[in-house]
C-alpha cells in the first residue's frame, strides 16, 4: 500500500515536471486574480477584508488546480491506472499530491499578495503556518473527491464549483477565523478550538474519501 502510494506520487511529480504548462497556468491564474483584485481595490487597509480576500482568491485557485486531477487524464489511461493500483492508493496519492500543490499555491499566492496588495504584518506566524497547512489538507481532501465525482458527470466544470463550494464553507470560515487571529497576534491558545474543528473536518473528510472512492471509479 505505502509502496503503491509512493510510486503513484512519483508518477504525479514526473507528469507535472514533464507538463510544466499546467502548474505554470495555475500560478498565472493566481497572479492574474491577485492583480485584478489589486486594480479593483487599490489598497485594503482593514485586516479583516485583507484576510478574507486572500482566502477567497486561494479558494478559487485551488478549485481550478484540483479540478484537473481527475478530468485531465484520458479515460483509457484511467482504466490502465486502475488495473495497476488499488483505488485506495490512488486517492491517498492524489490527496497527498494535492495537499503539496495547495501548500505551494498558498506560499506563492501569499508572496504575490503581500507584494501587490501591501503587507499586513502577521504577528503570530506559527499559527498562520499551522492554519495554512491544515487548511491545505482539508481543501485537498474535499476537492479531490469532488473532482472525482464531477469528472463522472456531463457538465463537470460547473458541477465542480457547485458541489465543492458549499461543502468547503465550514472549513473556509474556520480557517479565515484562525488566520484573522494570527494577524491580530492573539495567543495561540485562543485558536485551539478552531484548530481542533479544522483537524476534525480533515479527519472526517479524509476517512470518507478513503472509504468512498472505490465506489466512484468503477463504472
Amino acid at each position: 500500500m505505502i509502496n503503491e502510494v509512493q510510486r503513484l506520487l512519483y508518477k504525479e511529480f514526473l507528469l507535472e515536471s514533464r507538463q510544466k504548462q499546467s502548474i505554470n497556468g495555475i500560478v498565472l491564474y493566481l497572479v492574474s486574480t491577485i492583480f485584478v483584485c489589486k486594480m479593483c481595490f487599490r489598497s485594503l487597509p482593514q485586516p479583516a477584508a485583507w484576510n478574507a480576500l486572500f482566502w477567497i482568491i486561494l479558494l478559487f485557485a485551488s478549485v481550478n488546480a484540483v479540478s484537473k486531477s481527475f478530468m485531465q487524464d484520458s479515460k483509457a489511461r484511467f482504466i490502465y491506472l486502475y488495473s495497476l493500483a488499488s483505488p485506495e492508493a490512488v486517492i491517498v496519492a492524489k490527496i497527498i499530491y494535492n495537499t503539496l500543490l495547495m501548500l505551494l499555491l498558498s506560499l506563492i499566492g501569499f508572496g504575490i499578495y503581500v507584494v501587490l496588495l501591501g503587507g499586513n504584518p502577521i504577528q503570530n506566524i506559527p499559527l498562520f503556518v499551522a492554519d495554512a497547512l491544515l487548511g491545505s489538507m482539508g481543501f485537498s481532501a474535499i476537492l479531490t473527491t469532488m473532482s472525482a465525482i464531477a469528472s463522472r458527470t456531463n457538465n463537470s466544470f460547473t458541477l465542480m464549483a457547485v458541489l465543492s463550494f458549499p461543502l468547503l464553507l465550514p472549513l473556509l470560515m474556520t480557517i479565515i477565523k484562525i488566520s484573522k487571529n494570527a494577524i491580530d497576534g492573539l495567543d495561540t491558545s485562543i485558536s485551539y478550538k478552531y484548530l481542533l474543528i479544522v483537524l476534525a473536518i480533515n479527519v472526517i473528510t479524509g476517512v470518507l474519501s478513503y472509504l468512498l472512492f472505490p465506489y466512484l471509479w468503477k463504472d
Binding site: T145, I149, R152, L167, P170, I197, L216
Partner: peptide, 24 residues
C-alpha cells in the same frame, strides 16, 4: 452511486454546520 457518495459528505457537513459551528 455518485449521489450516495455526495449525500454522505453533505450530511456530515450539515452536522458540522448546524450543530457544531453555531455553538462555537
Amino acid at each position: 452511486r455518485l449521489a450516495a457518495v455526495y449525500s454522505l459528505f453533505a450530511f456530515v457537513m450539515m452536522i458540522v454546520f448546524i450543530m457544531i459551528l453555531p455553538r462555537m
